[in-house]
């Protein structure tokens, strides 16, 4: 299938050491920052999707903190891994993890959804070059990501491609077109992660359109399937490592998560999925629950 000269690169993942304890702590701290930043940016925006941004914070923190070979200083390096936020409405979480790792400015990225701001309601490559593709229409990011994986394989690149999908997103037919396609083309450099928080815009997945048996569906499409707690950083690290060593099949990680994770009054409440406006008191409560100090809360909410 390849038409470029074959590069001799051994799999770095198989050779890499097991995750260290301090790495997990670092990721946990990054995830906490992501959650705080999400609350603050949505508070300032007056709209945005907190539930699904909070549920994927640990996944994003693990990807950007340990798994992705990407460098903020060279967003166009052809050797980099690619990450696509297919659930584009979780943009606040992507901006937050980007800010934490130096892809964008922490303060500027609090100007979410504002006139003139590059931090649009859904990520756009035209505004932010480190965003790999524009998303916001469910299903498309997944297809774009598999196209990247296919193209990288054709060019004998060792770079890997990751796509984060929402659970409600799996109701889009395009996802299953892509699932069939990625398996058919044996895209083992491709890893999809499903933020399985069980809730979508209006209600529970089960009420809107049942997804179960979800793991069996992906297995039937011939993917390597892992099912884990999406808030367990250690499990995420191990599972990403295993996905990186999988041959001849794409990998999917079904990450069981809690929508609104970390903010007690939001957890498992569909009302916090959609675009919502946070009051000062709600934002304050959320940030307190997320471990922010009074000083930090003032900086987040008054410093912009």
């Amino acid at each position: 299938m390849a038409f470029a000269p074959k590069a001799v690169i051994t799999s770095r993942r198989e050779a890499a050491p097991p995750p260290a304890r301090d790495l997990e702590q670092e990721i946990a701290l990054a995830a906490r920052f992501v959650r705080q930043h999400v609350i603050a940016s949505i508070y300032h925006a007056g709209s945005g999707h907190p539930g699904g941004s909070l549920s994927c914070a640990d996944i994003l923190a693990t990807l950007f903190g340990a798994e992705l070979n990407t460098w903020p200083g060279s967003p166009h390096d052809p050797m980099r891994d690619r990450f696509v936020l297919s659930k584009g409405h979780a943009a606040p979480a992507l901006y937050a993890v980007g800010a934490h790792h130096g892809y964008c400015d922490k303060l500027a990225s609090l100007k979410l959804r504002k006139f003139g701001s590059p931090f649009q309601g859904h990520p756009h490559i035209g505004d932010l070059p480190w965003v790999e593709t524009s998303t916001g229409s469910l299903g498309q990011g997944f297809s774009v990501a598999l196209g990247m994986a296919m193209g990288l394989k054709l060019q004998n690149s060792s770079a890997r491609v990751y796509a984060l999908l929402g659970d409600g997103e799996l109701q889009e037919g395009e996802v299953w077109e892509g699932a069939m396609c990625a398996a058919h083309h044996k895209l083992d450099n491709f890893c999809a992660i499903i933020d399985y928080n069980k809730l979508q815009s209006d209600a529970r997945n089960d009420e809107i359109m049942r997804l179960e048996p979800l793991a069996a569906k992906w297995r039937a499409f011939d993917w390597a399937v892992a099912e884990i707690d999406g808030h367990d950083v250690s499990a995420l690290l191990k599972t990403f490592r295993r996905a990186g060593a999988t041959h001849d099949r794409p990998s999917v990680i079904i990450a069981h998560t809690v929508k609104g994770k970390g903010v007690p009054y939001m957890e498992n409440m569909p009302a916090w999925h959609g675009s919502v406006k946070l009051t000062r008191e709600q934002a304050d409560d959320a940030l307190t629950a997320l471990g922010a100090t009074h000083k930090e809360i003032r900086e987040y909410l008054d410093g912009v």
Binding site: P78, G147, C181
Partner: peptide, 26 residues
């Protein structure tokens, strides 16, 4: 044949995947 990519009868996936292929320089 090595540059002919079969997507099956699935045009939505094919169209978006073209974006990914272009993104990696093809």
């Amino acid at each position: 044949p090595e540059r002919f990519l079969q997507f099956g009868i699935a045009e939505q996936n094919m169209m978006a995947a073209a974006g990914g292929l272009a993104a990696v320089g093809l």
